[in-house]
Simulated assay, not measured.
Amino acid sequence: MMIAEFEDYLAKIEDAEHQARVREVLNWVQTSFPQLEQRYAWNQPMFTDHGTFIIGFSVAKSHMAFAPEGPVMTQFADQIAAAHYNPGKKFGRIKWTQPVDYDLLHQIIAFNIADKADCETFWRK
């Protein structure tokens, strides 16, 4: 179930296929990890756990980005490369023409939830 801010965000994605894809990913995250809270901040939909950041998503002309924080990108660098996602320091880019690797996303999110279980701040220190 999407929150109003997510719907407002999705409505601004002009390409209908891109909008549907982002909606699918956001719904998948919420269904797969129902304990996560939805939050809209920094102009992007994100998910948090006990007030700490887990993952955020954004869109650009040629890709959808997932942002799990820098240490997670380092932890999963090999898998992200194997999926042919273009990595940045703190986020990965999934081209609109590429399939979403839900298994990899699941591993990334599950890792962040476990790794930040005792984290009392929004971002890692």
Rank of each mutant, 00 (worst) to 15 (best):
H84Q: 13
N27Q: 15
W42P: 02
D49Q: 08
E24W: 13
E14R: 14
K12I: 15
E120H: 14
E69P: 04
T121R: 11
W42M: 09
D15I: 12
Q75R: 15
A16L: 12
D101W: 05
E14M: 08
I13S: 05
V25C: 08
D78L: 14
A77V: 11
F57P: 00
T121S: 10
F76V: 06
Q44D: 00
A20G: 06
Q35P: 08
T97S: 10
F47A: 02
Y85W: 10
H18R: 15
N43V: 07
F57K: 05
P99S: 05
F6T: 04
E14P: 06
L36Y: 09
E5R: 15
R93G: 00
T52Q: 11
F66D: 02
E24T: 14
P71I: 13
Y9I: 12
K89G: 01
A60V: 00
R124E: 04
F66P: 01
L10H: 11
V25A: 07
T48E: 06
D103T: 10
S58L: 03
Q19A: 10
M2F: 15
W123T: 04
F91S: 05
A77W: 11
D101I: 05
P34D: 05
W123K: 02
G56A: 06
N43G: 10
V100L: 00
A4K: 14
A67I: 15
I113E: 06
G88M: 04
K12H: 13
I113D: 02
L105P: 06
D8T: 14
R93V: 00
L104Q: 07
F47R: 07
W96I: 01
A11E: 09
P99L: 04
K125I: 13
E37I: 10
E7R: 06
Y9G: 09
L26F: 09
P45S: 00
M46C: 09
Q98N: 09
Y9Q: 11
R23C: 00
F6R: 03
R124H: 13
V22D: 04
F76W: 09
A81I: 14
K116P: 04
N86K: 15
V100N: 00
P71E: 04
D15G: 01
F122W: 12
A60G: 04
K89H: 00
Y85L: 03
D103C: 00
M1C: 01
G56T: 03
G70L: 09
I13K: 10
I108M: 12
W28R: 03
T31I: 11
W123I: 08
A11Y: 08
W42N: 03
S32D: 07
T52G: 07
I55M: 01
S62N: 13
R23P: 04
S58W: 08
P34K: 12
L36M: 08
